[in-house]
Design a protein around this nucleic acid. Sequence first.
DNA 1: TTGTACGCGTTATCAT
DNA 2: ATGATAACGCGTACAA
Lengths: 333, 333
Amino acid sequence: MEKPPTIKDVASLAKVHAATASRALNPQTRGKVSTRTANRVLEAAKSLGYAPNSAARSLRTKTSSVAGVIIPDLRNPVFPPIVRGIEDGLREAGYMALMGNTDGDEERERELLLAMRGRQTDGFILATGRRNDPTPADHVPTVLVNRRTDSSDIPSVTNDNNAGVYSAVQLLASLGHTRIGHVAGPQELSTGWERYRAFVDAMASHGLEVDPGRVVFSTAFTEEAGYRAAVELQRDVTAVIAGNDLIALGCYSALDEHGLSCPDDVSVVGFNDMPFADKQRPGLTTIRIPHYEMGLEAARLLLERIANPTTPAKRVILPVELIRRGSVAPKGS
Amino acid sequence: MEKPPTIKDVASLAKVHAATASRALNPQTRGKVSTRTANRVLEAAKSLGYAPNSAARSLRTKTSSVAGVIIPDLRNPVFPPIVRGIEDGLREAGYMALMGNTDGDEERERELLLAMRGRQTDGFILATGRRNDPTPADHVPTVLVNRRTDSSDIPSVTNDNNAGVYSAVQLLASLGHTRIGHVAGPQELSTGWERYRAFVDAMASHGLEVDPGRVVFSTAFTEEAGYRAAVELQRDVTAVIAGNDLIALGCYSALDEHGLSCPDDVSVVGFNDMPFADKQRPGLTTIRIPHYEMGLEAARLLLERIANPTTPAKRVILPVELIRRGSVAPKGS
DNA sequence: TTGTACGCGTTATCAT
DNA sequence: ATGATAACGCGTACAA
C-alpha cells in the first residue's frame, strides 16, 4: 500500500520547487515556466505515474470537475443513451459524472442534490425537471435535459415535440385516418404537455376534430400506466398517437385486450424511438429523438455555464425524425 | 453567492472551538464531548445549514464515500438494471457512484481508473473484467460484477452460468433436440467461457454429441457479431443456445437470412433475459439473471471490503432461472 | 471534557 | 522564470 506520488515527489525528481511543478503541470499556467523545465516536470510526472489529488485541488480551487447527473430511473430505456452522451460530453473537458436516480420522488431528488452539492459538484444535469419547478436557489450551474420548466431561466436541451407530433398527425391523416386519439403523458412534465398541445394544434391545422373522448391522460410514462389509460379510450378511434414509446406499448396491450389488431384495426405511433422500438411486434412507428446528442449537448451547455455563469440561458431544441414501421396502415385496410 | 458555512462558523456560534465542534458533529466521536455542548453544536450547525466540505474531509481522511463504477457501455441493456442495483446498494451506506464507460477499450479503462483514483474514489466496481486480468496493483478495494477473473483473489458477483446452460440443454433435449448448436460469446470473458464449457459438459451428461461444426464463436456480445457467427453454423442444427440475448437476436437475423423459421425450423435460447427479451418475435426463451440483485450485492460486497480490506475475497454466485417463451418448440414440430 | 497545533496536497500571491 | 509561503476546511494526537 505505497502512497500515490504527490506533486512534491514530482518536483524533487525534476529538481524544481513544488510551485513550479504545479505551474508546469497545469496547461493553463504552463506559459509561466520555461519550456525546458516544463518538459522535465512532465516527464517526471509520467515516470512516477503522478495523478493530482483532486481533493486537495478542490479544497484550494473550489471546483471538482465533477457534475451531478440526476434522472428518474436508468431502467427507462430512453435514459441510457442520454447518460452516455452526457458522459462523453463531460469527458471532453476532463469532467466525470456522479449519478443518481430519483424514481420520480421529489424528496429523494432534494436529498441527492444536497448530497452532491456537499461533494463539491460543479454543476447539475437534471432529467427530472417538472414544468413548474423553481429555479434552484443556490447558484450552482444547472442544465435540464429532455424535459424543461415553463419559465425560461434555466438552460435546457429538449426535442422538437411540436414538429414530431405534427409529422405523426400528418402521416396518419395522409393515410385517411380522421378519428385519431391521443394517450397523453403526464401534464406536469413538459414532454407530456407539449405533445398534447401539439396534438391539438396539428389536428386543427389538418381540419380534424379532437373529440374529448379520444384523448386520455396517462399518469406516468410507463407501459403499465399507458395501458390503464388506453383502455379508457373511446372505441371509435382508428389511430392513436401515444405520449411516448412505453405508453405505445401499453396501447398494444390494450388493443390485444379488446381483441383489436395493430395496424389492421388501429394504427399506433409512439415517441422517442427508444432502443428496441424496432423489435416490437409490430415494429413501432415513432418519432426518433437524438438521445445521445441530447446528452452530449447538455454536457456542453453545462460546461459553458460553469465557465461563464452569467451567460444567458440557452434553450436548445433538437430536431426529430419520423420513423415509419409496421404499426401504421391506411385506414380500413 | 455567499460562501457556505464552515465548521469554524458553527464553532463560534456554539461558543466552542472548532475541534470540539468537529467531535460533536461526527457521530463516531460524539462520545468524547458533553451531551450539552454536543446539542448546542448540532443546533448551531442546523441553523446555519452547515454541510461539511467533503474536499477538506477527503484530504484529511483519504476517503470520499464515492465508488467508481466502470462498465463497457451503458447502452447494452443488461447494464442499466445492474447499475441501478449498485447505486441503491451504495446509497444504503451514504455512498455515491462515479460512472464511466470503456467501450471495451483497455486503454480507456486504465485512464478511467487513474482519473477516478485521483478523485479519491474509495473503491471500484468493474463490469469489465477479463478472465486473465491481473489483480489491481494498488490495493484499492475492487469488486467484479457479472464477469470475473480466472484467479480467485478479487471478490465477484456472477451468475450460475453452469446451471443456466444446463437447464437450457435439458429443455431442448426433453423436446427431442439432439443436434444442438452453440453460438458462444468471447472466450476471454468469463461469461463466454463458462457458458461454452457448461454447454460441452451439459451435452455430454445428456449423452449428446458436440459436433465441432455446430459450435461457433462470436467476437463480441452484440447482435451484429452474433449474426456474423451464426451464419457460419453448420446447417443441420435444430436448436441453438446463444452466448447471450443479443447474440440470440443475431441468430434470429441469420435464420431469416437462410429462410428458416424460429421456432418451427430452429429453436433458440438466449442468456440474461435482458429487458424487452419478451417483446421479440418470437418471445425469446432465455436464462434470467438477477440483474438488479447482482448490482446490489456487488455494492454490499464493496462496502464490506472497504470497511475491512483484509477480509477474504468472496465470490458470490447468484441463481438463475429458465424463462420459456415462443422461441423453442419440439423438434420437427 | 475541551483547547492547541499541525498536516493532508494543491495552488495563488508575493518576493527574488 | 522560479522559489518561498500561506491558505483552503477538516480531523486528530497531544496537552491542559
